[in-house]
Protein backbone atom coordinates (compact mmCIF):
# COMPACT_ATOMS: atom_id res chain seq x y z
CA UNK A 1 0.00 0.00 0.00
CA UNK A 2 1.35 3.42 -0.92
CA UNK A 3 2.34 5.60 2.00
CA UNK A 4 1.70 9.31 2.20
CA UNK A 5 4.19 12.12 2.71
CA UNK A 6 6.02 12.85 4.76
CA UNK A 7 7.63 9.45 4.60
CA UNK A 8 9.12 8.82 8.05
CA UNK A 9 11.79 6.15 7.97
CA UNK A 10 14.14 4.82 10.63
CA UNK A 11 17.70 3.69 9.98
CA UNK A 12 18.71 1.03 12.46
CA UNK A 13 21.21 -1.76 12.52
CA UNK A 14 21.34 -3.69 15.73
CA UNK A 15 25.12 -3.78 15.69
CA UNK A 16 27.15 -0.58 15.72
CA UNK A 17 29.89 0.22 13.23
CA UNK A 18 28.14 -1.02 10.11
CA UNK A 19 27.98 2.43 8.51
CA UNK A 20 24.40 3.25 9.45
CA UNK A 21 24.96 6.98 9.98
CA UNK A 22 27.08 7.32 6.86
CA UNK A 23 24.39 5.64 4.77
CA UNK A 24 21.62 7.72 6.35
CA UNK A 25 23.48 11.00 5.74
CA UNK A 26 24.27 10.15 2.12
CA UNK A 27 20.75 8.88 1.45
CA UNK A 28 19.35 12.08 2.91
CA UNK A 29 21.57 14.12 0.63
CA UNK A 30 20.67 11.97 -2.38
CA UNK A 31 16.94 12.31 -1.72
CA UNK A 32 17.28 16.09 -1.41
CA UNK A 33 19.04 16.29 -4.78
CA UNK A 34 15.72 15.36 -6.41
CA UNK A 35 14.11 18.52 -4.97
CA UNK A 36 12.65 16.67 -2.02
CA UNK A 37 12.75 18.44 1.31
CA UNK A 38 14.56 16.07 3.64
CA UNK A 39 15.03 16.13 7.40
CA UNK A 40 17.59 13.85 9.02
CA UNK A 41 17.06 13.41 12.76
CA UNK A 42 19.99 12.20 14.83
CA UNK A 43 18.17 9.62 16.94
CA UNK A 44 21.27 8.63 18.87
CA UNK A 45 20.24 11.04 21.59
CA UNK A 46 23.12 10.47 23.98
CA UNK A 47 25.99 9.79 21.57
CA UNK A 48 25.24 11.78 18.45
CA UNK A 49 27.20 11.19 15.25
CA UNK A 50 25.42 12.88 12.36
CA UNK A 51 27.10 16.21 13.15
CA UNK A 52 30.48 14.47 13.19
CA UNK A 53 29.93 12.82 9.81
CA UNK A 54 28.92 16.18 8.34
CA UNK A 55 31.61 18.21 10.11
CA UNK A 56 29.06 20.45 11.78
CA UNK A 57 29.68 22.80 14.65
CA UNK A 58 26.56 22.32 16.75
CA UNK A 59 25.30 24.90 19.23
CA UNK A 60 21.80 23.58 19.95
CA UNK A 61 20.49 20.04 20.01
CA UNK A 62 17.36 17.99 20.63
CA UNK A 63 18.33 18.00 24.30
CA UNK A 64 17.26 21.62 24.64
CA UNK A 65 13.83 20.80 23.26
CA UNK A 66 13.35 17.99 25.73
CA UNK A 67 14.87 19.69 28.76
CA UNK A 68 14.27 23.40 28.11
CA UNK A 69 11.35 23.48 25.69
CA UNK A 70 13.29 25.08 22.84
CA UNK A 71 11.48 24.87 19.49
CA UNK A 72 12.89 22.17 17.21
CA UNK A 73 12.66 24.53 14.27
CA UNK A 74 15.25 26.75 15.97
CA UNK A 75 17.61 23.79 16.24
CA UNK A 76 17.49 22.70 12.59
CA UNK A 77 20.70 23.04 10.60
CA UNK A 78 20.44 23.58 6.86
CA UNK A 79 23.00 21.50 4.99
CA UNK A 80 21.88 22.25 1.44
CA UNK A 81 18.85 23.99 -0.03
CA UNK A 82 16.56 21.04 0.75
CA UNK A 83 18.53 18.99 3.27
CA UNK A 84 18.20 19.71 6.98
CA UNK A 85 19.63 18.03 10.05
CA UNK A 86 18.33 17.92 13.60
CA UNK A 87 21.39 17.28 15.75
CA UNK A 88 21.45 15.44 19.08
CA UNK A 89 23.76 15.77 22.04
CA UNK A 90 26.86 13.76 22.78
CA UNK A 91 27.88 12.57 26.23
CA UNK A 92 24.49 13.14 27.84
CA UNK A 93 23.45 9.77 29.32
CA UNK A 94 20.09 11.00 30.64
CA UNK A 95 18.99 11.58 27.06
CA UNK A 96 19.12 7.83 26.47
CA UNK A 97 16.46 7.20 29.11
CA UNK A 98 13.68 9.67 28.44
CA UNK A 99 10.50 9.33 30.46
CA UNK A 100 7.24 8.54 28.70
CA UNK A 101 6.28 12.20 29.07
CA UNK A 102 9.57 13.36 27.52
CA UNK A 103 9.16 10.90 24.66
CA UNK A 104 5.66 12.23 24.00
CA UNK A 105 6.91 15.82 24.08
CA UNK A 106 9.72 15.09 21.64
CA UNK A 107 7.65 12.99 19.24
CA UNK A 108 4.85 15.55 19.30
CA UNK A 109 7.32 18.29 18.34
CA UNK A 110 8.84 16.09 15.65
CA UNK A 111 5.43 15.30 14.17
CA UNK A 112 4.75 19.03 13.98
CA UNK A 113 8.01 19.77 12.16
CA UNK A 114 7.83 16.68 9.94
CA UNK A 115 4.91 18.20 8.02
CA UNK A 116 7.33 20.63 6.40
CA UNK A 117 9.26 17.82 4.73
CA UNK A 118 8.83 15.13 2.10
CA UNK A 119 11.15 12.65 3.83
CA UNK A 120 12.06 12.40 7.50
CA UNK A 121 14.91 10.02 8.25
CA UNK A 122 15.69 8.93 11.81
CA UNK A 123 19.22 7.65 12.37
CA UNK A 124 18.76 5.66 15.58
CA UNK A 125 21.37 4.48 18.04
CA UNK A 126 22.83 1.02 17.65
CA UNK A 127 21.47 -1.84 19.76
CA UNK A 128 17.93 -2.46 20.94
CA UNK A 129 17.82 0.12 23.71
CA UNK A 130 14.75 2.10 24.64
CA UNK A 131 15.22 4.98 22.21
CA UNK A 132 15.79 2.59 19.31
CA UNK A 133 12.49 0.89 20.09
CA UNK A 134 10.33 3.94 20.62
CA UNK A 135 11.75 5.74 17.60
CA UNK A 136 11.05 2.64 15.52
CA UNK A 137 7.57 2.42 17.00
CA UNK A 138 6.98 6.00 15.86
CA UNK A 139 7.98 5.57 12.21
CA UNK A 140 6.13 3.71 9.47
CA UNK A 141 9.08 2.20 7.61
CA UNK A 142 12.30 0.68 8.81
CA UNK A 143 15.60 0.56 6.94
CA UNK A 144 17.80 -2.09 8.50
CA UNK A 145 21.46 -1.81 7.61
CA UNK A 146 23.89 -4.65 8.16
CA UNK A 147 27.17 -5.99 6.88
CA UNK A 148 28.26 -9.53 5.94
CA UNK A 149 29.75 -9.94 9.43
CA UNK A 150 27.95 -12.78 11.33
CA UNK A 151 27.54 -10.59 14.41
CA UNK A 152 25.91 -7.91 12.27
CA UNK A 153 23.56 -10.46 10.68
CA UNK A 154 22.52 -11.78 14.08
CA UNK A 155 21.96 -8.32 15.56
CA UNK A 156 19.96 -7.10 12.57
CA UNK A 157 17.79 -10.21 12.74
CA UNK A 158 17.34 -9.80 16.51
CA UNK A 159 16.26 -6.18 16.06
CA UNK A 160 13.73 -7.12 13.40
CA UNK A 161 12.46 -9.91 15.63
CA UNK A 162 11.90 -7.51 18.53
CA UNK A 163 10.15 -4.94 16.33
CA UNK A 164 7.98 -7.64 14.80
CA UNK A 165 7.15 -9.55 17.95
CA UNK A 166 6.63 -6.63 20.30
CA UNK A 167 5.37 -3.90 18.01
CA UNK A 168 3.77 -5.76 15.14
CA UNK A 169 6.06 -4.05 12.63
CA UNK A 170 6.40 -5.61 9.20
CA UNK A 171 7.56 -2.87 6.84
CA UNK A 172 11.28 -3.53 6.54
CA UNK A 173 13.77 -2.45 3.89
CA UNK A 174 17.20 -4.04 3.95
CA UNK A 175 20.53 -2.53 2.90
CA UNK A 176 23.68 -4.64 2.96
CA UNK A 177 26.69 -2.41 3.53
CA UNK A 178 30.42 -3.02 3.14
CA UNK A 179 30.07 -5.89 0.68
CA UNK A 180 32.78 -7.12 -1.68
CA UNK A 181 30.39 -7.31 -4.61
CA UNK A 182 26.80 -6.72 -5.57
CA UNK A 183 26.37 -10.46 -5.89
CA UNK A 184 27.50 -10.98 -2.30
CA UNK A 185 24.95 -8.42 -1.12
CA UNK A 186 22.18 -10.10 -3.07
CA UNK A 187 23.06 -13.55 -1.67
CA UNK A 188 23.16 -12.22 1.89
CA UNK A 189 19.78 -10.60 1.43
CA UNK A 190 18.25 -13.79 -0.01
CA UNK A 191 19.50 -15.75 2.99
CA UNK A 192 18.24 -13.17 5.48
CA UNK A 193 14.89 -12.98 3.71
CA UNK A 194 14.56 -16.77 3.87
CA UNK A 195 15.18 -16.84 7.63
CA UNK A 196 12.83 -13.91 8.29
CA UNK A 197 10.15 -15.56 6.20
CA UNK A 198 10.59 -18.98 7.80
CA UNK A 199 10.64 -17.91 11.45
CA UNK A 200 8.83 -14.55 11.57
CA UNK A 201 6.68 -14.60 8.43
CA UNK A 202 8.29 -11.30 7.47
CA UNK A 203 9.03 -10.41 3.85
CA UNK A 204 11.42 -7.46 3.67
CA UNK A 205 12.27 -5.53 0.53
CA UNK A 206 15.81 -5.31 -0.76
CA UNK A 207 17.09 -1.81 -1.42
CA UNK A 208 20.55 -2.90 -2.50
CA UNK A 209 24.16 -3.28 -1.39
CA UNK A 210 26.91 -0.72 -0.95
CA UNK A 211 30.46 -1.94 -1.58
CA UNK A 212 33.55 -1.39 0.49
CA UNK A 213 35.17 1.63 -1.07
CA UNK A 214 38.08 3.84 -0.07
CA UNK A 215 36.04 6.79 -1.29
CA UNK A 216 33.88 6.28 1.79
CA UNK A 217 36.91 6.23 4.07
CA UNK A 218 38.32 9.38 2.51
CA UNK A 219 34.98 11.19 2.84
CA UNK A 220 34.61 10.19 6.49
CA UNK A 221 38.03 11.64 7.24
CA UNK A 222 37.04 14.86 5.51
CA UNK A 223 33.75 14.81 7.45
CA UNK A 224 31.81 15.15 4.22
CA UNK A 225 29.26 12.86 2.49
CA UNK A 226 30.94 10.58 -0.08
CA UNK A 227 28.11 11.45 -2.44
CA UNK A 228 29.45 14.99 -2.40
CA UNK A 229 33.21 14.30 -2.45
CA UNK A 230 33.24 11.36 -4.89
CA UNK A 231 29.78 10.92 -6.42
CA UNK A 232 31.12 8.74 -9.24
CA UNK A 233 32.74 6.23 -6.88
CA UNK A 234 31.48 2.64 -6.60
CA UNK A 235 29.85 3.47 -3.28
CA UNK A 236 28.37 6.67 -4.65
CA UNK A 237 26.75 4.91 -7.60
CA UNK A 238 25.45 2.11 -5.38
CA UNK A 239 24.03 4.63 -2.93
CA UNK A 240 22.11 6.34 -5.73
CA UNK A 241 20.61 2.98 -6.75
CA UNK A 242 19.60 2.33 -3.13
CA UNK A 243 18.02 5.78 -3.04
CA UNK A 244 16.05 5.13 -6.23
CA UNK A 245 14.86 1.80 -4.86
CA UNK A 246 13.78 3.41 -1.59
CA UNK A 247 11.79 6.10 -3.39
CA UNK A 248 10.12 3.49 -5.56
CA UNK A 249 9.40 1.14 -2.64
CA UNK A 250 7.77 3.92 -0.64
CA UNK A 251 5.73 5.09 -3.60
CA UNK A 252 4.32 1.68 -4.60
Amino acid sequence: MAQSKPYIISFSSGKGGVGKTTVAVNLGLSLSQSTNRVLLIDGDLGLANVDVVLGLSVRHTIRETVQEGRALSDTLIRITKDFFVLPASSGVPEMTRLSVQEQELLLGALEEDAREFDYVLVDTAAGIGESVLWFNNWVGSHCIIFSPDPTSLTDAYALIKVLTTRYGKDNFYLIVNQVNSGREGQEIFVNMERVLSQFLDIHPQYLGAIPRDNAVVRAIRKQRPFLETEPGSKAGRALCRVCDNLVEALRV
Binding site: T154, Y157, A158, N191, M192, V195
Partner: peptide, 12 residues
Protein backbone atom coordinates in the same frame (compact mmCIF):
# COMPACT_ATOMS: atom_id res chain seq x y z
CA UNK B 1 12.34 -12.47 21.18
CA UNK B 2 15.50 -14.41 21.94
CA UNK B 3 17.16 -15.53 18.72
CA UNK B 4 17.10 -19.32 18.83
CA UNK B 5 19.97 -21.64 17.87
CA UNK B 6 17.89 -22.77 14.88
CA UNK B 7 17.51 -19.21 13.64
CA UNK B 8 21.23 -18.57 14.07
CA UNK B 9 22.11 -21.75 12.22
CA UNK B 10 19.96 -20.65 9.29
CA UNK B 11 21.42 -17.14 9.35
CA UNK B 12 24.94 -18.50 9.20
Amino acid sequence: CQVSPEERAQLF
